[in-house]
Each structure stands twice: as C-alpha cells, then as structure tokens.
Nucleic acid binder design. Structure first.
Length: 672
DNA sequence: GATCCTCGAGTTCT
DNA sequence: CTCGAGGATC
C-alpha cells in the first residue's frame, strides 16, 4: 500500500508544528497553543503514522513517548573525546587561572563566555544531515553508552534541525538533568505509590537515562541544555564560543538563559556572586559556574594540558554544609583491633546524599572538636565524598549533652582495651579471639587485592563466623555447597558460585598470599617487597628480625610485626592449613628492567581510556617501575586520565611530566 | 635529629 | 581521601 501524497504532506506539517510547539513550551517557556490543541495535533499524527507505517520515522515527535525495552546499552566511542574541566575552589584559584590565561595570551583583560555548571549528566548528540542519529552518555570521556532511544524522549532535544543551513555532521554536547519541580513531583508520585524516593535530581536523571524501557524515561520529563560542539562538518566558522551557542540556539537547542560574556577577573567574580545569589531560585541544580575564553583563536593558542583544556575552568561552589545532631557515638572494631568512634547522626541531606554516619577517627579528635552526644554539629562531605563533622555549634548544646569516653572493654568481645602511649588508637587486646577482628581478618583475606574471592561479603562472613561454621581464612577452603545451605541469601546458585570463587582463589601469587594474611604494618607494597626478597613462603616464615630488616623499606617496626606474626602458633597453623588446602602461587622473579620505566616513580590519576588504574599499575610494576599515591618532588611521571583530581594541580606546580595513557604505553614500549 | 616521602589503615554511600 | 606513623636520607 502506498501512502497518499496529502497524508505524507500532512504528517510532515504536523511534525514541524509539534516540534515548534515543543520548543516554545519546553525551551522558551512560552506556549502558543493550549494543551488540548497540542494533544489534538499529536493524536492526529499518531493516527496517520498508525495507518501508514511507512511514514513513521525515528525523528517523528511521536517517538518521544518511548519504545519498548531494548537490549542492554551498546558502547559508543566518542568521535572526539569528551574532556573534563579543571576545577577551581575559591577566588585565588580563579585568579591563578586568569593570570595564566593573560600571560599566555599577552593581554590585560580577557573576554570570557560564562555559564552555570549544571549538575546533571553530560551527553553527546550526533546529528547527521540534520537528523538526530545517536545520543550517548559521557562514560569515561572516551567511550559512553548508546542511550539514543531514551534521549529521543527528551522534549527539548530537537529530533530534526531546521531554520538555517544544516551541517553534514553536528555533535552537540550538553547536560541532561531533571528540573527541581519535576523532581519534587516525581518523588511525590513515588511516595504515593509507596516506592523508593530519589535522593536528588541528578540521581533521578541518571536513573531515567539508564532505563532499558524508554517509555519509562518518557514519563520522567528530563531537560537538556547544550554548551558546546564536538565533532562537526559543514558548520560555519565561529570566531567565539558565544557565537557557537547562538548558532545552537538558532537550531532550537536549549542554552542556559544565564549565559553571559564578561571581561576580566572582576567580570568573572561578579558573575559568580550573581549566580550564587540566584542559585536557590534557579529551576535546576548547579554546582558552580564555567568560564571559557571566548575567542576561539585564543582557545587554540592555549591548548590542552593532559586531559583538560587550559582555556576553561569550572568555578565550584564551596562544599555544602548542613546542621545535624549527634544521636550517639558508637564504637567499631577494625581488623587490627583499633576502636573507631562513629557518630550516628540525625539523617541530614547534604551535598546530594543523606548522611547518617560520620567517622570521628579517635578519642583525641573528639576532644579537639569537643563533641558531646546530643550536640548540634555542622556536617560536610569532605572531598565531596566522605562525611565529616566540621565543628560543634556550641550555643546549641543541650543541658543533657554527655561527653564521650572510650569504653574500657571491647564492645564486641568484652576484652580489655588498651591505648599505647604514643598511639592515637585504642585497641581491643583479644586479637583473633575477638569475633570482630576474626571477621575483619577473613574479609581482608577475601578482598579483591588479596585472594579476590568474589561474593564473600560482610553479611555472609557475619553468618559464617556467628554460626561457628568457620573460624579462620583457611576454613573457607573446607566449605562446600551443603555447608552453605540454610544461610540467609544463600540459595543453591549463589552457594555454588561462592564455592567456585573460593576454589578459583587457590591460584594466586606469593605477594597476594602474604598480603592476605593481614600481618600488621604489611600492606600491598610491603608484601610485594617481601615476596620479591624471599621468593617463597618458607624462608619468610623462619626469618628473624635481622633477616627481615635486610628487605628494602622494612625497618625495626615492620620486622617486629612480621616476626611476631609467625611466632604465634595459631598463625603458623593457619598458614599450614592454607598450604594443605592446595594453594599454589607463582614465584616472583625480578622484573626485566625496561629502559624508561625501571626505577622511575609514577603516580596515577583520573580515568584512563582503556586500562583500569590497577592494570596500569601492574604493568608499570612489571617493568620495574614504582607506583605511589601522592605527587612529590620524587615523582617522575604523572599518568593522567579523564577527570584528574588535585594530583594534577600538584604535578603542574612541581613541574612533573604529565603523560596520558598513550604516553605511558609508549614508555612501556607497547606502542610505537 | 629533622625532614621528606611513602605506606598502611580506616571510612561513606550508592 | 586523609591521617598517622614507619623508613630513608641528609
């Protein structure tokens, strides 16, 4: 059946009209027709498409209601990497940025394009000959996920470009987010349905974007704002960033209404303060503002450092603080028996999540901050992740507030607690007789960097130890599916998986085995050093303190912990039964020193395009290099991926050579 | 003996 | 990530 020409023409007209009204409504916030009129057009188009399926095109607005679930998302390699921005906290860091830019350009005052920094999810939209073809998440900056079907449901994203010369290729970069109003409505609905509420608009948007069923995404009313162009072919030459945004706006892409062009440092700070004041009233969440050198020729001259442009910076708002109340201070027992006080807080929403716990580190810390139970405290998410009690609000201390004192007996096993003269931590003296320490020892043994037993988590270890099924790590190798039956959350399948994972862990390396024993003061690095030096388990077990001190980086304290560990009959027995269980390990041989890497010290930061950080570390070690965690004068190379943190700034300060993944691979001789 | 650099250990929430 | 402390270096 062929499609009558007038039907095709009518469908085309309807699509254009509907998209125009979408734009008026969702982007400009100025509807020209009533909702009923809009619905009428929409239904007419749907009818036409139902009658003549040939008319149905992926760029039709009717497709915005979503399609049934597809497969899992396919990976998409970005045509041009989606880089991240360096962050500036505080005026001084912005000043430093502006100074670097001025010096590099030889100008007194630079013109900047400025805009709010949306707290959403970065996406890339690819238009081929004006038709929306591919939408992808940012992912690690190099590869993202294909979420085209979901993005198609976002009303403010044009499905087809019109109104000016359409380029052969246009990749629009922007942010998908959920406006505050939609977020509130969504949570109200979730509450009424008795379903879980979302913690913040960002998470709600992320959840919606990762729906396998785009019909669900369609109901979530996501918004989109564009801020740049990635790959392009056939676009006019822009002289300025602001012109490029005008061009996008002309194509009906939503662009931040708050965007502006300012001049010099004073202009930047004025803008920052202005947006800061408006922040609460904006319809969406933002976490700072972005400054970009407006002139493209200047941008090009400035270029990139590692993975971030030198011509732009994100000026972040300070970490959000909130007030809460210390309901109680509980004490946790760690692997080494260290007692750590943890504040149980009245749940408080800060920095995008609800915080209920915060570590107080030790007794001295509590005294220093003078924290009482019942106090009102200021809470912040330090480094944007770990909650921290900043200070006590002294005026609000209730009459009944009680000071904290470290218990004299272990809260888990009741043994004596002891605090050595020169140590900050109080410790339970029961050692492995304390169930808490026994559990932690087993968890450490099974952890990823140790024996890597997948599926053996805290809940399971709790049950296994509490029921007396296992006492030591060695007992794990005697478990079978029957022994696991009857435990909570342990059906046949998971039991079989666990037994299989335990079996797999028998093949390991000497370094991992030593590390997994959980000897005090022996972490991953020291375990490696020991493995390399002794080559086998036996000589390590019998080594005395003097022999141990001959190992590089092992001094009197570490030597003593090791000797003490193996002097303990219980530990020897565990090691013996581990061997009996059939653990086999590779001997370690000295790595063949490769020129360029051997003897050099590396620091890794950010997400690399292909390797994980662990893989990169492994390769460097294999080639005789060293990997440390902090940048210092002794660092030879910083390997930086996407989203580098503070280490990158430090490296720049110290003039440390910064490599990207390619550079590292070249150095390793794995790439021409 | 002082200083700098690393390592180890502990921690939150999704 | 951050703190505390062990080890190396001068």
């Amino acid at each position: 059946m062929s499609v009558p020409r007038d039907a095709a023409a009518r469908a085309e007209t309807l699509r254009r009209e509907i998209e125009r009204h979408n734009h008026q409504y969702h982007v400009l916030d100025r509807p020209l027709v009533t909702d009923a009129e809009y619905d009428g057009m929409f239904r007419e188009l749907q009818d036409l498409e139902a009658r003549y399926p040939e008319l149905l095109a992926p760029d039709s607005p009717t497709q915005r209601v979503g399609a049934p679930p597809g497969e899992a998302f396919a990976g998409v390699t970005h045509r041009a990497p989606m880089l991240s921005l360096n962050n500036a906290f505080g005026d001084d860091e912005v000043e430093a940025f502006d100074r670097r830019v001025r010096e590099a350009l030889g100008k007194d005052a630079v013109e900047y394009a400025v805009e709010p920094k949306f707290d959403g999810l970065a996406v890339s939209l690819v238009y081929e000959r004006g038709v929306f073809k591919l939408g992808a998440t940012r992912g690690d900056g190099y590869t993202g996920e294909d979420v085209t079907a979901n993005l198609r449901t976002v009303r403010s994203i044009p499905l087809k470009l019109a109104g000016q010369a359409v380029p052969a290729l246009l990749e629009v970069r922007g942010e998908v987010l959920m406006q505050k109003q939609e977020f509130d409505a969504l949570n109200r609905a979730q509450r009424e349905r008795g379903e879980k509420e979302f913690v913040n608009p960002r998470n709600a948007a992320a959840g919606a974007l990762r729906q396998l069923d785009s019909r669900v995404t369609a109901t979530r009313k996501l918004a989109f704002f564009s801020y740049g162009v990635g790959a392009a072919d056939g676009t006019p030459g822009f002289a300025r960033h602001s012109e490029m945004l005008d061009y996008l706006a002309e194509f009906r892409f939503p662009v931040a209404g708050e965007r502006a062009v300012v001049k010099g440092m004073a202009g930047l700070l004025d803008y920052y303060r202005g947006i800061g004041e408006k922040r609460q009233r904006l319809p969406y969440d933002i976490d700072g503002v972005v400054y970009k050198v407006n002139d493209f020729a200047a941008q090009e001259r400035l270029g990139f450092v590692a993975r971030a442009p030198r011509f732009a910076v994100a000026h972040k708002f300070p970490a959000e603080e909130a007030m809460s109340e210390v309901l109680a201070i509980e004490v946790q027992v760690g692997r080494t028996g260290a007692l750590t006080p943890v504040a149980r807080l009245k749940p408080v929403f800060v920095g995008g999540v609800t915080v209920t716990n915060a570590t107080l580190h030790n007794e001295d810390e509590i005294r220093r901050k003078d924290i009482h139970i019942g106090d009102t405290v200021v809470v912040r998410r330090a480094g944007d992740v770990i909650p921290e009690v900043v200070r006590v609000v002294a005026e609000k201390r209730p009459a009944g507030a009680r000071p904290f004192s470290m218990p004299e007996r272990c809260p888990v096993c009741g043994s004596k607690v002891e605090r050595l003269e020169d140590e900050a931590a109080a410790r339970c003296t029961a050692g492995l007789y304390c169930p808490a320490q026994r559990k932690q020892a087993i968890l450490h043994f099974a952890s990823r960097r140790a024996m890597d037993i997948e599926g053996l988590g805290e809940k399971l270890v709790d049950q296994l130890v509490d029921k007396g099924i296992i006492e030591t790590p060695a007992d794990l190798y005697r478990l079978d599916a029957e022994g696991l039956a009857g435990l909570e959350r342990m059906a046949e399948k998971s039991a079989a998986n666990l037994v299989e994972a335990i079996g797999r862990s028998k093949r390991t390396t000497l370094a991992r085995l030593i590390y997994s024993l959980g000897i005090r003061n022996v972490g991953e690095t020291t375990a490696r050093d020991l493995a390399l030096h002794f080559g086998d388990l036996e000589p390590l077990i019998v080594a005395d303190e003097d022999a141990l001190k001959r190992v590089p980086d092992v001094g009197p304290v570490v030597a003593k912990s090791i000797a003490q560990f193996f002097a303990e009959p219980h530990n020897r027995k565990v090691v013996e039964s581990l061997r009996g269980a059939g653990i086999v390990f590779e001997r370690v041989s000295k790595p063949p020193p490769k020129s360029g890497v051997a003897g050099k010290t590396f620091v890794l930061t950010g997400t690399l395009p292909h390797l994980t950080r662990d893989e990169a570390k492994e390769r460097i070690l294999q080639s005789g290099g060293k990997v440390t965690g902090t940048v210092s004068k002794k660092t030879d190379y910083l390997v930086a991926g996407a989203d580098p943190g503070s280490k990158h700034d430090k490296a720049r300060e110290l003039g440390v050579t910064v490599l990207d993944e390619d550079g590292l691979l070249q150095l390793l001789g794995e790439k021409a």
